[in-house]
Design a protein around this nucleic acid. Sequence first.
DNA 1: AATGAATGAGTCTTCATTCAT
DNA 2: TATGAATGAAGACTCATTCAT
Lengths: 208, 208, 208, 208
Amino acid sequence: MGRNYRKKEKVDKMKELIIKAAIKVYAAKGMQGIRIADIAKEAKVSYGLVYHYFKNKEDVLNAIFSKSINIFLKAIENTSVQEKSLKEKLVSITTFLFNACRELPEFMYVIMFEVIWTPKFLETRNFITFTKAFATFEKILIEYKQKGELRSDVNTTISTYMFFGGLEMILTGIVLKAIPVEKEDVFQRLSNTFISQYVYGLTAIQKA
Amino acid sequence: MGRNYRKKEKVDKMKELIIKAAIKVYAAKGMQGIRIADIAKEAKVSYGLVYHYFKNKEDVLNAIFSKSINIFLKAIENTSVQEKSLKEKLVSITTFLFNACRELPEFMYVIMFEVIWTPKFLETRNFITFTKAFATFEKILIEYKQKGELRSDVNTTISTYMFFGGLEMILTGIVLKAIPVEKEDVFQRLSNTFISQYVYGLTAIQKA
Amino acid sequence: MGRNYRKKEKVDKMKELIIKAAIKVYAAKGMQGIRIADIAKEAKVSYGLVYHYFKNKEDVLNAIFSKSINIFLKAIENTSVQEKSLKEKLVSITTFLFNACRELPEFMYVIMFEVIWTPKFLETRNFITFTKAFATFEKILIEYKQKGELRSDVNTTISTYMFFGGLEMILTGIVLKAIPVEKEDVFQRLSNTFISQYVYGLTAIQKA
Amino acid sequence: MGRNYRKKEKVDKMKELIIKAAIKVYAAKGMQGIRIADIAKEAKVSYGLVYHYFKNKEDVLNAIFSKSINIFLKAIENTSVQEKSLKEKLVSITTFLFNACRELPEFMYVIMFEVIWTPKFLETRNFITFTKAFATFEKILIEYKQKGELRSDVNTTISTYMFFGGLEMILTGIVLKAIPVEKEDVFQRLSNTFISQYVYGLTAIQKA
DNA sequence: AATGAATGAGTCTTCATTCAT
DNA sequence: TATGAATGAAGACTCATTCAT
């Protein structure tokens, strides 16, 4: 049992190694450009070895996605269970993702870019995973709407899509350097600005 | 001259035919799956002919993008010159894109999905095209902010990204049927809901 | 009859035009690189027209060869019938080819380079044409050998091959600019040197 | 180290195998006709493997040339360092090439035919390689000319070109069976005849 | 476990040739 | 006669995947 445990640990470590390399390649070359040979090179193993740990290329791609999406899911799920005001929850998610964008840009790249929208992926459980994340978020909105803290005409589904869509686009802008981020504190300010705009939209009382 | 005119017309017609076919294939199979042979089949021409009108595969891909992105750009540019209230302008753009989504779903697919975010494209002028569209939109916001119609702490850049990000995500949801649209009038309602949420965010006076 | 004559004249003129263009392309790109489209472009006609005047590509290639080789053959045949000393005859041929090399470098290129040695051509009558040229030259040597003007151990076949081989290599050197020819008169000197070496050999001290 | 040595040995052996096959195909079909698929078939490997050992077709072609030309270069270089009379040196080179022609006809084919004269090759270092070979040979002539053993009006450059041009043409004639060689000893006689003609020229009665 | 040699299906791309106008 | 649009066979090249060592 101890031996098997060790073995499994080794396997996981190798898988991890390969996935990390794969994500790097992915971020650099995109869905089209990703090649098993490049992943192996990046991971400094032979490409034959990749097939020891993964069934085939699609299996690697799925692993990339799973690994990346989990960061994203964790951010939302952790938030939803903590007792906080709506704004605090949004700040929590947003901050998490902004930080991830700074610290794990490659992972964010994967989340934001192609994998998500590739037809192949849309047909599989990956899309379902994403849908779940959206649903988890929407539950938060629904809860606060029922409490009467949101305008009654807010459509929680639309608002959910706007949240992630807006956030994704901003993060994209940052990753692509279309939105410049010279200093560390700019992240904080961008995050605040985003949330203000979003929350006002949800809660505001129409100007008379 | 008349002859040359006719000829150019014919060439354009053929290019159009091939691009349309390419977009269909693209929407169906994605960036990875697109093959010259399929495009030719879809267009009901030989694949040799594709090379008569386009230099190579990348050239076709660029044409797909140009054609698609233009729909998007037109919507924004037309709007910016017309004299309307901010909300009217947003309605104009949004309505246009919602309609496009219904009437030309394949084009919208291309705009929203992979092409945009493929590393190759991000390196080229395509990203610049996008950036321009964003800048055009931001000008509208800046104008109204200067008129004092927006909250003073609105960051027009962030708001621009939120507009397109949110809109894109909703349209994506619709295209992927994650957001159901049974009846025609639902489009109108979704559009209104989106704009309300967005405009309140921009203009609202904080609840006391 | 007059009409047909005119017509034939026109056809020949067009064929000539195309062959000349073909030779240029050939000299520039070699056997591998030659394309009907390039020939047509060089001749400033449509590539469809090439097929009016030639059955197919091979037909054009054969025409290139025939046209080029004829220059070569003429030089030898004209010489052989004129009453001259051996050396005069050799001078005549050599001078002619040196001049051709200067005035029609592209034709010489074709003669000297690939066409001749391409397996396809070696199988056809082209090789025979060449063999005939050699035989014509050898007859001259045989004649003078019988007159006792050549050493008795001269092998006329070998000497024939040496003549054309040596001459070809020198012309090649000139065409490829490995042998520099700054001034016009260098041609004459090279020609003389070649013939001296051919007729008298290398050695300073003559056998008694 | 032992392992790496073995590995490199294996790689070289495979490259050798493929080049040999390529030369055979080349000799049979010429520059135009050579196809990776045929090389692979001839070598009894998959064509994918050819790309394992060579970057692309051109790389294979270059290898063919390098391999072939080396035989030729060795013959000249070895000769130049050995202390012998001029005639002995010429015999040495000639004999070597005549033997090569008999024993490795395909290599000789490559040396003599297309590769050398293909524009692509003429632009690259291949032509330089050839030029070097010629220069090496010319040095021998220069040396003997300075010793006063050659006629003072001998142009060593021209004589060099004549040597290789003549030799090449004879070997070509043999390879193409235009010069018949029924028995082994004919080679020797041809070789002697060639050298005599080269050294002593054609003429029976020497100029005083 | 690890390597990378070997395979070959899948695609892009070129270009000779045909044919409608 | 002249054009060039249209065709598709041919071949280079890539790369996921297998397998012997």
